[in-house]
């Protein structure tokens, strides 16, 4: 089960104050990067929920984000719904689709689960790529942002939109923590540690998996809606499997199953990407080397490494955070 340690609180405070500082002082370009980080952070939070706490390593979260983005774009432009209704509908549709995917894939494990989710993601990608109502490979433009002028907030302002995303991310983080601490979330972790035992306890395993996967998809869909509103233009490239792969990379770089780690990962990844791509066009090479280094070092990402370091320094009986999690669950 997920629980906050002082270190995690400290990291959250640090991240939040960094984001706030950036939101109030940065210029246009800095704000764009901040918004990109915040949206990516929502996506990886959704992925960490299922991958880190239920062992469901999904390669379709990028596509789910795309479903949210396309759902919002089509509903708000072609179907002519007002932005709040379109937002809610898009998030709802994504949640429904991901619940179905989660239910279908709940019987698969390990590499087969990865492949099955990849298949669903690619299915959505190739459909959108060819379907005329989604604009095909041209993408869709002219997407409007949410209109909050009734309460005196203008989201078309870059700074305001970044702050809006920050508030949304905080709310989503709270939601993720709530879900993981609920009975559902505890059963979900139980299923990861021992599926047979949970079944013997009378749990309907596939329902638990599908429910959490649906909630995670809902968050990914919301991230997609915000991404569509942020760039105001979407293309099928948003749904390609490499987006899901990158999201997984961010989760691993940050620290799987720590919820705070992926937030750190998202910030590091986006900043690294922008810094490196201004230096060299071969930034994938460097990201690849870092990824290999992190995975082969056997540390649980950047944040996991810091947690391990502090756990080893303090005189706690349990050496690693992983061990703590297991004993607390048992």
């Amino acid at each position: 089960m997920f629980h906050h340690t002082p270190l995690r609180y400290a990291a959250l405070v640090l991240l939040a104050s960094g984001a706030l500082f950036q939101a109030f002082t940065a210029q246009y370009f800095g704000l764009e990067i901040l918004t990109e980080i915040l949206i990516l952070a929502m996506l990886v939070l959704a992925l960490d929920m299922v991958a880190g706490f239920g062992g469901m390593v999904s390669l379709c979260h990028g596509a789910l984000m795309g479903v949210g983005a396309y759902g919002y774009a089509v509903l708000s432009t072609t179907a002519g719904l007002t932005p709040p209704v379109a937002m809610a509908a898009a998030v709802g549709i994504t949640a429904g689709i991901s619940w179905v995917i989660g239910a279908i894939c709940s019987r698969s494990h390990g590499i087969y689960f990865i492949m099955a989710t990849l298949a669903f993601g690619q299915m959505a990608y190739s459909y959108v790529f060819e379907a005329p109502i989604f604009g095909g490979d041209d993408g869709l433009g002219g997407i409007e942002r949410l209109d909050l002028s009734a309460v005196g907030i203008d989201l078309n302002d870059t700074r305001t939109f970044a702050l809006f995303c920050l508030v949304a991310l905080a709310a989503i983080y709270g939601l993720a923590v709530m879900v993981l601490r609920s009975g559902l979330g505890r059963s979900f972790s139980g299923v990861m540690h021992n599926e047979q035992r949970m079944r013997a306890l009378g749990l309907t395993v596939w329902r638990v998996k599908a429910d959490v996967f649906g909630l995670s998809g809902m968050i990914a869909g919301f991230a997609g809606v915000l991404a569509a509103q942020h760039i105001m233009y979407i293309s099928p490239g948003l749904m390609a499997w490499t987006v899901s792969g990158e999201a997984l990379v961010v989760v691993i770089l940050g620290g799987l199953g720590t919820l705070v780690g992926p937030l750190v990962g998202a910030a590091v990844f986006v900043v690294l990407k922008h810094e490196l791509s201004s230096l060299t066009t071969y930034w994938h090479l460097i990201v690849g080397v870092i990824l290999i280094g992190v995975v082969m070092s056997r540390a649980n990402g950047i944040f996991g490494f810091i947690e391990d370091y502090f756990a080893a320094r303090s005189k706690a009986a349990v050496a690693t955070p992983k061990a703590t999690e297991v004993t607390k669950d048992a």
Binding site: V57, V249, H284, L285, G288, V289, I290
Partner: peptide, 26 residues
């Protein structure tokens, strides 16, 4: 990586894709 789980293997080889791709470009 032989003894690691499928997840770690997927990630290391995903990293290798990045590296090999850019090496061919270079």
């Amino acid at each position: 990586m032989r003894k690691s789980g499928p997840m770690a293997q997927v990630l290391v080889t995903f990293g290798l894709i990045f590296v090999l791709l850019d090496m061919t470009r270079i």
